[in-house]
Design a protein around this nucleic acid. Structure first.
Length: 556
RNA sequence: GCCUCCGUAGCUCAGUGGAUAGAGCAACGGCCUUCUAAUCCGUUGGUCGCAGGUUCGAAUCCUGCCGGGGGCACCA
């Protein structure tokens, strides 16, 4: 009996009761969702449905609860159903019914916890999108971890998700980057507004190696040299970014070039930006004023209209944003998710307005997730001059698993101050090791069981009666709902918090219940059944860790 | 000024209207001839920023204050 099945039973019971009373109130499974009470005395699962429906159907909450409980007690697998307080219904499962979960988890394996709530949805998930003019740094890591984990959770809920990185490879920043790289390659003094940082010198050296005659080209045609240096520097830097992300266990399906939005088609077709402006103009959202092209975003809730062209005729960044949005729409994405830092908060209004101007629903077709900034206050961090901390250095210092876990375990809208020493520590004030250790323990038990002759030839769930066993089973039963909730709310941190609870329940169980008999005691069905439970715990720990992109080691 | 996020134990933070508000750390005290003690058990610790409101019930929803972060470009 899973909580979902219990909720279904309660929904049909309540539907009949409501109908018998002549009410046409509709009862859904959502209304009878049960939760795990904090207090053991309140049973395995509790429902507040009687309190929620009493008023709507004109009944006394406790009487309604009595009526529901009486019939809930008859459900196959329910040991007892009691009412408490103002009208809670506390349900206790019989041990065999609860214990079945262990077998179910093992049989479903990696599929356990996956659902179909978002089936059929095609979602574009854009995140990181850092300028390709330098290495990824601390500020990007939180979005990389959260974006990738969110995408994984959405996929677990049945959605088709494309991870996308928008490369700002057009405009003034790129030119500045090109001049910086060229100067470094030629061994010249850096231009006044050059990008700072050693990486420019490194890129310059590599460019000089790969274009041996760069100096000659520069002497005769400075512009040509700049173009070549800029292009090669860009490609090298982008490759570095991709490598860093892969090391961070973050994979992007699409790297979308801003430049491609500015480029006209081969047969003299307009560029995507021009095409986008034409389309929006045809819908009546574009106007001209003060020698500039504007889009009337105020018609869709923005606080001011926005310009598409600057005075010099060059398209604004926002014009490219609009064309990019239309590209996502044209590529068949329903929901477009943008994961942005709090410093981009001002973009929400105009992005939503573009969605509206494109004919999309500004509530359901676009989601802008704003994350608060992260800072790392470990004193050792400033070994590198300046306060830019590169992702690669972080990975070397802290490791992918620890960094991803810590970045994933807080909600995006909560400001985050990481303590580097804590992230790095190998003690139990470090939740990532606590959870990974729980998984390693399941693997150790598995190895030892095999050596001790405990096998899986029997499964007797009615024997799983120890308090730590019912607790652990309850946690395992909650997992699918946790995944569904995390997907619905786009909050992957719920997975991490759940894993910490699951790990705690597992450690407590391990401490109290032996899978392998002591000394000369015989192997019994209880031990064999516990091995199933151990397998199930390991499986769910693996499934959950995978959703936040963290490894599940067999040994620590 | 306007928009937005945050304010919960000494610290770092969970808590999608439910029961006595939780976890880890810190402090103090226990369990290793063990399926690896990176685990486990116990004790101490609270005006959920403040004040109203909504309701059977509010840390959670609404309003107003107070305090802090971020944002309000023909920059990218």
């Amino acid at each position: 009996m899973t909580p979902q099945e219990l909720a279904q039973h309660l929904a049909s019971i309540l539907t009949e009761i409501v109908a018998a009373r002549g009410s046409d109130v509709v009862v859904t499974e959502q209304d009878t969702k049960v939760d795990r009470p904090k207090n053991r005395d309140h049973g395995d699962w509790a429902s507040n449905a009687a309190m929620k429906f009493a008023k709507r159907i004109g009944a006394n909450p406790r009487e309604l609860a009595e009526e529901i409980a009486a019939r809930a007690a008859e459900i196959d697998g329910v040991a007892k159903a009691e009412i408490a307080g103002p009208g809670f219904i506390n349900i206790t499962l019989d041990a065999a019914s609860a214990g079945e979960t262990a077998r179910r988890v093992v049989e479903q394996g990696e599929a356990y916890g996956r659902g179909d709530a978002l089936a059929g949805q095609r979602i574009n998930m854009e995140f990181v999108s850092a300028n390709p003019t330098g290495p990824l740094h601390m500020g990007h890591t939180r979005w990389a971890a959260l974006g990738d984990s969110t995408a994984r959770v959405l996929r677990a809920a049945g959605a088709e998700v494309v991870n996308e990185y928008y490369i700002n490879d057009a405009g003034a920043q790129m030119n500045k980057f090109g001049r910086s790289v060229l100067a470094a390659a030629l061994g010249e003094e850096a231009p006044e507004d050059a990008y700072p940082g050693e990486y420019i010198q490194t890129l310059g050296k590599r460019v000089a190696e790969q274009i041996p005659d760069l100096a000659e080209i520069a002497a005769s045609d400075r512009e040509a040299a700049l173009e070549q240096a800029q292009e090669l520097g860009y490609q090298l830097q982008l490759a570095e970014i991709k490598d860093s992300l892969e090391r961070f266990n973050v994979h992007f399906d699409v790297f979308f070039s801003e430049r491609s939005l500015h480029t006209a088609g081969e047969n003299g077709e307009k560029s995507p930006i021009e095409g986008a402006i034409d389309r929006l103009r045809a819908e009546g959202h574009v106007f001209e004023e003060d020698d500039a092209i504007w889009v009337r975003t105020t018609a869709f809730g923005d606080d001011k209209d926005r310009v598409f062209t600057r005075g010099n005729g060059i398209f604004t960044y926002f014009a490219a944003d609009a064309a990019y949005y239309l590209s996502k729409k044209d590529r068949g994405f329903g929901e477009k998710i943008y994961l942005l830092g709090a410093d981009h908060h001002g973009y929400i209004g105009r992005l939503k307005a573009i969605a509206g101007a494109a004919g999309d629903n500004t509530e359901t077709d676009i989601t802008v997730l704003i994350g608060q900034l992260v800072n790392l206050n470990g004193a050792r961090l400033s070994k590198r001059a300046g306060n830019i901390i590169e992702l690669d250095d972080l990975l070397e210092w802290l490791g992918t698993d620890a960094l991803r876990y810590w970045l994933a375990r807080y909600p995006a809208d909560s400001p985050l101050a990481l303590d580097g020493e804590k992230v790095r520590s190998r003690t139990n004030d470090n939740p990532v090791f606590y959870v990974q250790y729980a998984h390693a323990r399941t693997a150790a038990v598995d190895r030892n069981a095999a050596a001790a002759g405990v096998d899986r030839s029997a499964f007797a769930p009615e024997l799983l009666t120890h308090a730590t066993e019912t607790d652990l089973l309850g946690k395992l039963q909650q997992y699918p709902a946790i995944v569904a909730g995390a997907a619905e709310l786009r909050e992957p941190h719920r997975i991490a918090r759940y894993l910490e609870e699951l790990a705690a329940a597992y450690h407590r169980w391990y401490d109290n219940c032996r899978v392998i008999p002591m000394g000369e005691e015989p192997v019994e069905d209880l031990h064999r059944t516990r091995l199933w439970l151990n397998d199930a715990a390991g499986q769910v720990l693996r499934n959950g860790l995978d959703l936040i992109g963290v490894s599940a080691p067999e040994r620590l």
